[in-house]
Structures are given as structure tokens and as C-alpha cells.
Design a protein around this nucleic acid. Sequence first.
DNA 1: TACATACAC
DNA 2: GATGGTGTATGTA
Length: 527
Amino acid sequence: MSKEHKDNENKGLLCNFTHEKAGMQGLDREKINKIIHDTSVNTEFFKREQEHIAIVEEKARSMKNRISESLSKGPDFIREINEEIYKIIQEIESERHLSETWIHVDMDMFYASVEIRDNPELADKPVAVGGNSMIATANYIARRYGIRSAMPGFIGKKLCEELVFVKPNFSKYREEGEKIREIFRDFDPDFESMGLDEGNLRVTEYLINNEMNHDEGRQELARIIRQRIKDKTQLPASAGIACNRSLAKIATDMGKPNGQYFIPFDKEQIIEIMSKMNVRKIPGVGKVLEKTLNELGVVTCKDILQKKYELYIAFQAGSFKFLASAALGVGSCYHHETREEQKSISLSRTFASTNNIEEINKYIAEFSREISEQLDEKNAQIKTVSVSLKTYKFEPKSKSETLGRYIYKELDIYEIAIKLYNELAIKEKIRHVGVRVANIIYRRTGAIDDIIEKVSKDPTPKQSSIKCFSQQCPVCNKVFMYTEKRMEIHLKQCLEEQSQKFQPKVVKKQKNAPQPTITLDCFYKKK
DNA sequence: TACATACAC
DNA sequence: GATGGTGTATGTA
């Protein structure tokens, strides 16, 4: 999906947050945009997006101000930054390597390809893998209607009445993905990957060992890899061949669908190819940076070089170097030293907006349990817990806490998570909630008690030990979620606070008894 | 450290 | 009527 995903984004939805892309010339953009707009307008999502765009535009405005201010400082200043830019470009050039070979392979409309392969009747129909709320991938027929991944299904349906929806079957995709990865390993055991259907392979050694370390051999190898994928899975793949990681990825996009593209290992030709490239094609340039650059008059990579003074002033050194490197086609071409361990684990869900505290509570409890299980499997512990949510207005909020100790038990995580959720003190309905843990260490010390506990416990039934309930505090009248322990703590604090105020507050009589205890066991068994 | 943003798939 | 889930990196206060 990599590229397709990036191609579509919210394109069309918000014409001013996007641009026309190659391969879409045949489409009736105006009609498509109108349908998308009419379907979206008046939604909270749309409002939120508009606000977001306004913020990005405002930032771009202040960048422009800074630029014109700086440029009016006079020739000495220009000479100064010219020198600095020159230094950076020299540095970038010193990082240019033309003798490593990278082949990036990406499956074409991966999920849709798998589904069509397994149900050939779909082959000549517009197909979307996903549901009413989100399309994960669309086949090329559907794309002719303007349907893209990351588009909500109901808009897809509006764009094409005959659109066929297929429910995603992730375990199947994982399986197919594993077959592909097995092939990748033959050519580069350390290949890099950002998803199920993609691999970035450094094949320099393979080429040398097989006496094919030349342009023809490089392209031949890409054909071989794609053919092996085809033989093994019956699925089409595209590939890009170039001298560094990022160029290879860009090349894949140029080869799609079901093709490959070779970027010559030659400085002048690389710069020539890149100069025409839209900045959005640069891996790492998303819709916000694209929009910002566009506002500054930068659309293609050539513009990056032409507006180097402006960009140097507007951006931080690191970002400037990133953009200049991309424009010059220079990128890193060795594998990252060590593949690091996972740094965080998170679970989240979107649902119909609600303020039902019990429902939210169930999610938090469930996430805590699942995260704890994952930590068990990894024999890991964590020090940071965060809770995030989105209000019904799509406003994200989050709160996190780093503890002075490591934890991993479901109840420990849950307690912190609930505490954080309560501290967020959200009054509106919410449409999304999530729990994340971070600061992971991959060992457990002094866990003897646990081991004993585990051994003595019957290993079969995996059920929650959390007993929790939502309840109104009789002192402060707030409705909170509690475990028994937390309730005790809160009550104590609450009473203290009240007594400090010296003003015995009139405690409203509760209308009804505390809400019934939610035993999570019920919840899990239901599922 | 805490939080928000941006990005990728 | 309605716009995802998981993970990483980075900027800013």
C-alpha cells in the first residue's frame, strides 16, 4: 500500500491541502472533488481539517515573514547564509555514494491483489478492501473513480455505486507477506521493511557474489525477485533500483503498477530525475510539509534548490539538510547499525461517540490486560503509561506518566491509565480511546513471586483480575472509574481536601445506589 | 518529562 | 450518518 496510501491521503477532500498527482490526468477531478466535498462538508471531521489547514497556513505565513525580514538584512547577511548553505551542500555531496545497490520491492494494491487472486470474479470490478468507515486498499479499476486507500468507504460508495467491498483478512495478508519476506531474505538477510508488503534490500554483496554488479545485473535481479514473488504468490510486485534506500523507494513508485524503474548510478542523471519530482514523493514529506512547501512556492525538488535561501531561513538546520539531500538524490545507503527493540506498545479503538464511562472503562481495562499479556510474552516491563483520546470533534488529547519504577501487571497499568484518564477530565463525548506503554526494558528482575504465582495458577483460563466499577464519589460528586483500591485513595484525598476547606460542603444525596460492579470476566466471555 | 505533531504503512 | 490502528521520531515548553 505504501505509495497508494501516500498518493491519496485526503486528496480531493480538501483541494487546498493537496495537489494533482501523476497518473490521475484521466480522472474527472472536479466531479470527484465535488462529491467528496459534498459528502464531507458539515461533518466534525471536515471542520477539524479546515482548522488544521488554517493552522498550517498561518505557520507558513509567519515563515514567509521571517524570510522576507531576513533577506532584507542586506548583502552581508546573504553572503553569510550562502556560505553556510554551500557548506551543507558540500557535506551532503560527501555523503553521496554511487556503488551500493538498493532494490525496493512493493506489492501492488496488496490486500486487493490477494482478494482478487482468491476470488477471480472480482477481477473486472471496482474493489475496495475495507469497510464503510475506512478503505485500506482499492484496485486500479476503483481508482479510476477517485477511490483510494484511507478514504472512508461511504465516500467510495458515493464515487462508484458498484464498488465491491471486501472485508480485510489480515491473517491472510500476513501469511502472504511472510512468503514475500522469505524471498527477500535470500537476497538480503537484513532487509528493511515498513509494512507487510514491502522490502528495501541492500543487494550489493549479492550482486558481487553473483558477478552481476553492473546496471544490467541490477535490473535483472529486480526482475528475478519480482518473478519469484509472482511464482510463489501469484501476486504482482513493483520494484525500484537505485544507489540508496530512499531513491530506491521513489523508483518503485515510478515503476508501478507491475513494473520496475532503474535510477542510473550517476550524479547528473539522479539530479535530473529528482528535479522534476514532486516534493510529496520524498519519503518523509507528508501532507503538512507538502502544504507548507507549496505555500513557500516549492512544488518540485528543483524548487527546493532554487529557493534554498528561503528554506534555509524558514526551516531548522536538520530539516533543511533533509530537503536538500532529497533534492540532490543523496540518501543513506547502509543498514542501520542495530535493529532496535520495540519502544512502545499501544492499543486503541474508535467507536460511536460516547460519554458512557463504563464503556470507556471496559476499553481501558481490556487494553491494560492485553498490553500486560504482551509484556509477559516479551518478559518485559515498562515505566511509562499514557492514555489518549479523541473528542467527538476529533480533538486529540493525551496524558502520560513516567513512574519511578517498572511495572507490567495488568492492574498496575490499569490503575495508572484510569488515573490519567480521570485527570484529563473530559466533559465531552469521545470517539476514540487508547492506552500506550513506553520506556520498555526487556527483562524482569525479582520476579520470583510472579513465577511462583504463575506456576501455581492453572494456565488455561486467561481472565482479568481487575474488578472495577464506575461510581460517584460521595464527597466531590464526580463520576469516576475505580478499582476498589483507587476508590479508597480518592476518598481519603477528597475528604482531606474538603476538611481543609473548612467549609463542610453539602453532599447531595445520591439518587441511586452505586452502579453495579462490572466484572470484566463477563465482558471477555461475551466476546 | 510531558504533550502535540508529523509520518509511514 | 459516517473518516483506522500501531509505531517511531521530533519539536517545544
